[in-house]
Amino acid sequence: MVQATTARPRTHVLSRLTSAAWFVFPFLVLLAVWVIVLDVFEIPERTFPAASSVWDAAVAMTLDGTLVAHLVASLQRVVVGVGLAIATGIPFGLLMGLNRAVATFFAPLLRFSVALAGIAWIPLATLWFGYGEGAVTFIIWNSVFFAVVYNTTLGVGQISEDLKRAAATLGSGRVRLLTEVLLPGALPSIVTGLRVGMGYGWRGLIAAEIIATNLGLGYALFLAQKYFETDVIILSMILIGLIWLLTDRLLLAPLERRTVRRWGMQQGVE
């Protein structure tokens, strides 16, 4: 806060390194436990794979290209589904936040849908769109859409009347009000909604892929279970965990921090 001394960058890097080490350490312990337990209790590969088998499976699947194919398929669906949800959810949420009549009409339905969003739609989605891309994308869209609409509405509702009046007296028209006040004002809430919705969406994706596709991480899980390939199962689980952890920590959480904290707006962080 006062004089920044030369000591600062070094301690900074050092403390970053130690905290990174502390993050990795538990996983090393977990790995050790994995290896030792399998060895001591002589657990068969069919029940739980050796760490080395998982590694071998990773190498083999990378070499023959299946891993990349599954990964790309899943990520593609997420990008399309989430993109669609953002493109439809935010305008709809803003409309609900602005127009009493629309809000009153849709509010109960929305609460109902938010509770149901995602996985519960799988039977209906596969009926409507058949097994395949359409159904899976619909599930992701649906998980994220309702969460985004709900939180956008909430966000617009929380913008103080004074702020809108201030904008009006400063000469902003309806469009400007939307782009300069309502959208940024609701943004922290929207980002929270996105984060929650994507949590549901990612789970929904895995479930939908298990049930309704022939490519993607969920399908890899399904196939491996059918043939008792526990090594592929564990590999897929680790990948699923890693991808979500990276998405949440490197993309969503910083986004939420940047909007919510930066502007000093308070918002429930889950």
Binding site: I119, I206, A224, G241, L242, W244
Partner: peptide
């Protein structure tokens, strides 16, 4: 938490 419940079903 990131691995998520559903991914556990196969195993």
């Amino acid at each position: 938490q990131a691995v998520g419940d559903i991914a556990w079903l196969p195993i």
